[in-house]
């Protein structure tokens, strides 16, 4: 579904992505793991059109259409069904919870369908229905993450990019969020997940890619990587 080839991305003068290549197959849950500053978020920002690569390509295939993400506006990328739930949540603090969710549905024209999705989101996260009219900035971190994910779901993703959805959250909330991720996968949404919590990510991932210093250094199934010595040492905290 997604084919990333030899992406080179600069941020300012820094060469951040140095020839990144990987694939995500339709319906897959792929994990992208790596240390701080490896370039994971940069990869997602490039896929959603917020950063432009110096060279390389990223091809999204959906419904028979083939789109080069490195040439599309972020608006067209969203309309094509590639939805990015960014690092640090980035919800609209001054807007109400309901308005945040409506912003997620910004490109959706079918009001009836939006209402249905809204109900689904409210079923997944009942707290969002309860606090619909509260300013999103006044919610707890966990609730804000639910707003961010709910907002992404209202965009009807075909492929979802999740950047560290569990960061800084209580274990119970992390579990809820991972449940939702798996449930989404079971409805056929393709997912690319960045996680600090590599153990949890590898457990649910079909495929995983390890990024170091701006390149993918290792790819495999979740199980393969979970048993790989190098991964165990660097990312799973297992002593050699």
């Amino acid at each position: 579904m997604l084919e990333v080839r030899d992406l080179n991305v600069y941020r300012g003068a820094t060469h951040v992505l140095k020839g990144v290549s990987f694939d995500v197959r339709q319906g897959q849950l792929a994990a992208l793991i790596g240390a701080n500053g490896a370039g994971k978020s940069t990869t997602l920002l490039t896929l959603s059109g917020l950063l432009r690569p110096r060279s390389g390509s990223a091809t999204l295939r959906t419904d028979g259409a083939e789109l080069d993400l490195t040439r599309l506006s972020s608006e067209k990328i969203v309309r094509a069904g590639l939805i990015h739930c960014p690092e640090g949540r980035q919800i609209f603090q001054s807007l109400s919870v309901a308005e945040n969710l409506d912003m997620g549905a910004y490109t959706q024209r079918d009001r009836a369908e939006v209402c249905r999705t809204m109900e689904e989101v409210h079923t997944l996260f009942p707290i969002l229905a309860e606090r619909a009219n509260v300013a999103a900035g006044s919610l707890s971190g966990g609730e804000q993450m639910m707003v961010a994910i709910g907002r992404a779901l209202l965009a009807k993703p075909k492929m979802l990019l999740l950047d560290e959805p569990s960061l800084g959250l209580a274990p119970l909330v992390v579990e809820t969020i991972f449940d939702v991720i798996q449930r989404l996968k079971s409805t056929g949404v393709t997912i690319l997940l960045i996680e600090q919590n590599a153990a949890m990510a590898l457990e649910i991932a079909d495929a995983a890619h390890v990024m170091e210093n701006g390149s993918i250094v290792l790819s495999g199934t979740g199980e393969e990587l979970a048993s790989n010595d190098r991964v165990r040492q660097s990312y799973l905290g297992v002593a050699a």
């Binding site: 972020s74 608006e75 969203v78 309309r79 960014p86 910004y106 907002r151």
Partner: peptide, 12 residues
């Protein structure tokens, strides 16, 4: 409030 996030919602 957040131009980047607005772009990620598909706002032109």
């Amino acid at each position: 409030e957040n131009l980047t996030a607005a772009r990620l919602m598909g706002v032109a």
